[in-house]
Amino acid sequence: MTGNKSEGNDPGPSYVEDELSPEAAFELAAHETRIAVLQTLQAANGGPLSFGEIRERVGVDDPGQCHYHVDKLCDRFVRKTDRGYTLTPAGWQLMGALLSGSVTSSIPEEAVDAGGACSECGGGLSAYFRKSGVTIACTACKSVQTDPDIPPAMFEDWPLEDLPEVVGRHTRRMELDAAHGFCPNCRGRVSRGVVTPADEAAPDWFDGQETDAIVLTDCQRCGRWWHAVPSIAALAEPAVIALHHDHGIDLRERPWWTLDHLAVGDVALTSNPTRVRIPIALGDGWTVVFDDAFDFVETRQTER
């Protein structure tokens, strides 16, 4: 589950000053000619393009009008260099948001077999596509396995039957971002930690679930948050990736709900110090250990 906090979000110290409000930034780009300029530079691999090349490709007859709109984009979304105009990192990000379909598209509502088995009853799973994301749920007991919001354009150029794998890669990428300390939404710094039902930070629905802990990731900048059970969050850890690779499993190609050796809610939690022990039934059996910040501690082979 993901969300955004409305209050209580303390971003901590900041070394970056906002030179432009979000409203002003959107106003700068809110014109069809300016969007066309950005699209032209993006299509040219970010530039550089001369002013004449931009005007010709955008199709603006009046040089003064074209200069006006290009100048409005300069410094924030476009950079003027000796060789011509190029996209800035902010320009690339804006075009990325448009190309991803996050703000312009929706996902056709369809369903497709997701493979794997339900963690609750062992039934089959289907991927149900909604306008802004995907729900992987059991066809028998209706238990939801995962329910991420996904940019629609992520599914372009993929066959329908491969879309559940794309969902798996997307959710795993979120955990990889979190493991490196970054929010996948705004690239802000995230805090990450192990939460139990008794903790103040625990969501209301957590009490009564069939696991003793979840991993909560919380962005200090935009307030986006999400949770994952430890066995799924652990799949972003290099040691766990290597363990699967040694047993012939490429986690890039296998969504977590197709991993029969992974007991999703099976977690052993100990205190003083806090340790989260996750069993992984590969080979003779392994246990992966994390601390209360969900930082990797060690991998142990299961005692026989």
Rank of each mutant, 00 (worst) to 15 (best):
T2S: 13
G8L: 10
P11A: 12
G12W: 01
G12K: 00
S14V: 06
V16E: 14
P22M: 04
P22V: 08
A25D: 03
E27W: 03
A36D: 09
G47D: 10
P48D: 13
R55V: 07
R57I: 09
V58W: 00
G59M: 12
V60G: 05
Y68Q: 09
H69I: 03
R76W: 08
R76H: 08
V78C: 02
L87G: 02
P89D: 14
M95H: 05
G96I: 13
L99K: 15
S100N: 08
S102Q: 09
V103E: 01
S105C: 10
A111Y: 11
E120Y: 13
C121M: 01
G124Q: 08
S132F: 15
T135L: 10
I136A: 01
C141Y: 07
D147M: 08
M154S: 08
W158Q: 09
P159T: 05
L163Y: 12
E165Q: 14
R169C: 04
T171E: 02
E175K: 07
A179K: 05
H180F: 11
H180A: 12
C183H: 00
C186K: 00
R187D: 15
R189K: 04
V190W: 00
P203H: 03
F206N: 10
Q209F: 06
V215D: 08
T217M: 05
T217I: 10
D218N: 14
Q220M: 11
C222E: 03
V229W: 00
S231P: 07
S231I: 09
L235N: 00
A239C: 05
V240E: 00
L243I: 04
D246C: 06
I249H: 10
W256R: 14
H261F: 12
L262C: 05
S271H: 15
R277M: 12
A281R: 06
G285W: 15
T287S: 13
A293R: 15
T302R: 12
